[in-house]
């Protein structure tokens, strides 16, 4: 037991800070509403308009795209419809009625974002993202980042090729993301929880927790529970 106590003490000294940080970041994340973190409430899903009359035939789409196609999808993009053709060089959007190519530029991204935003605050900035950032690390790039002037500084991320709203980032998410970084110990990308550092520290903390658990069996004496025993007796007497 002496050895266990020493192990617990020294592991506590070396790993205690990370154990404490795991506790605090875990407790903080438990308090932050996950629906707000996921950004579900920031996006409105509009009911799609009926499909347009006289959509182009497959041959006409193929001609408009001018490349081999492995998949074609006819789908709504906010209140309009698009043909999305998958080609060897990526997805191409085509207007389903007149066959013109649709490009998601900054003006279009802004319009799409405003329509999808669940709020009335104006747009503060529209910028293109070509390299992964903390906010866009889970999304396909290139993307458009459209920020709004609401309290949460809601930012919608749109796929720059397809125009689809990929997700929303809010101040709640930004706060949560800080604790997530602490929790997974990936201080640069905040993405991977499968790296050697965290595995080594977690293995050490397993010994910290295990030695503490073993010590519990010898840490208590009969008199420690006397208060509980007395309390129960008192309750029984009252009955």
């Amino acid at each position: 037991m002496f050895l266990i106590r020493r192990l617990h003490k020294w592991f506590g000294l070396v790993l205690g800070l990370q154990f404490l940080l795991w506790s605090i970041s875990g407790a903080a994340m438990a308090l932050i509403d996950h629906r707000k973190v996921a950004g579900e409430e920031s996006i409105v899903h509009s009911t799609p308009s009926p499909t347009p009359a006289g959509v182009l035939s497959l041959a006409q789409v193929a001609q408009a795209v001018g490349q081999p196609i492995s998949q074609i999808e006819l789908r709504p993009l906010q209140d309009a419809w698009v043909y999305a053709a998958t080609t060897p060089s990526g997805v191409q959007l085509v207007d389903p009625v007149d066959g013109r190519r649709i490009v998601i530029d900054d003006a279009r991204a802004k319009t799409l974002a405003v329509a999808a935003f669940n709020g009335t605050a104006p747009v503060t900035s529209v910028s293109r993202v070509d390299k992964p950032t903390l906010e866009t690390r889970d999304f396909a790039l290139p993307a458009w980042r459209v920020e709004f002037a609401d309290k949460e500084k809601t930012t919608l991320i749109l796929n720059a090729v397809t125009g689809e709203v990929a997700g929303a980032k809010t101040n709640t998410w930004r706060l949560w993301d800080f604790f997530w970084m602490i929790h997974i110990m990936d201080y640069t990308d905040r993405q991977s929880f499968n790296h050697p550092l965290i595995i080594i520290i977690a293995t050490g903390c397993l010994w910290l927790a295990l030695s503490g658990f073993i010590m519990l069996f010898s840490a208590f004496r009969r008199q420690d529970f006397a208060y509980i025993h007395d309390g129960i007796e008192w309750l029984q007497r009252r009955r």
Binding site: W22, G26, F193, N194, H195, I198, I199, A202, T203, C205, L206, L208, A209, L210, G212, F213, L216, A219, F220
Partner: peptide, 26 residues
Amino acid sequence: KWLSLIIGVQALFWVVSGLYMTAVHI
């Protein structure tokens, strides 16, 4: 001592489950 008595088992669960999730690649 007393806090550990209450939370000890769960602490062990947290560390063991955390270790599994980090050790096996996502």
